[in-house]
């Protein structure tokens, strides 16, 4: 049995005997992107697909997301998988507000992204009506591969995000738009 390990490559930097200098953004990004703690907010059929993603066949843990955080306070990534009823909207928003910065949101499936097949009075027509979303995963439901692809795109975002992004005017304006301080 081979026990070959792949280790994430170090970011580009200046290397010499006994020291290594690089950009702090890159180091933080590298660390964060490989240890995302997701908070699953699974409400319906897409949630089942998410469970498969977490299970041993697809094993989201390979991407550094071993630990599901069931408390928003210790979570980095909100995974919204499923239909969000309008009555659930404020709950979802509350969960998002309780997450500490930096936080990311992935919207899994047609329902979470746009309301999906539920074009009806009781369903929120996309979670981006109440919270900002970073990555949308299409599908009804998306296969685990697609969900993993979405999470890899989140990783890509996390890896390349400057640590000061959350202080920018642009980011503050986005939050303002949702009425979040």
């Amino acid at each position: 049995m081979s026990t070959e390990l792949t280790i994430t490559k170090a970011p580009a930097g200046l290397e010499g005997p006994g020291f290594f200098a690089t950009n702090i953004d890159k180091v933080v990004g590298l660390a964060r992107s490989n240890s995302i703690w997701p908070l699953p907010f699974a409400t319906s059929c897409c949630g089942i697909e998410f469970m498969a993603t977490m299970g041993s066949n697809y094993d989201l843990a390979r991407f550094g997301s071993e630990r599901m955080s069931f408390s928003p306070r210790q979570a980095d990534l909100l995974i919204v998988a499923g239909t969000i009823a309008k009555k659930m909207g404020p709950v979802l928003r509350q969960v998002y507000l309780q997450m500490a910065e930096p936080r990311w949101v992935i919207s899994v499936g047609a329902c979470a992204s746009t309301g999906g097949i539920f074009d009806t009075y009781s369903v929120l027509q996309g979670i981006d009506k109440v919270i900002p979303v970073d990555v949308y995963v299409p599908g009804c439901p998306p296969r685990p591969e697609q969900i993993i692809d979405g999470i890899m795109q989140i990783q890509e975002l996390v890896r390349n995000e400057p640590i000061r992004r959350r202080n920018t005017q642009e980011y503050k304006a986005l939050m303002q738009q949702y009425g979040i301080q």
Partner: peptide
């Protein structure tokens, strides 16, 4: 069952079934 803020009775036929805020259709 519906959210408290709702100001109509959704199964009455004079109201549309679809949600007015839908944007992707």
């Amino acid at each position: 069952l519906n959210m408290d803020e709702m100001d109509y009775f959704p199964l009455r036929k004079e109201f549309p079934l679809e949600d007015g805020t839908r944007t992707d259709k």
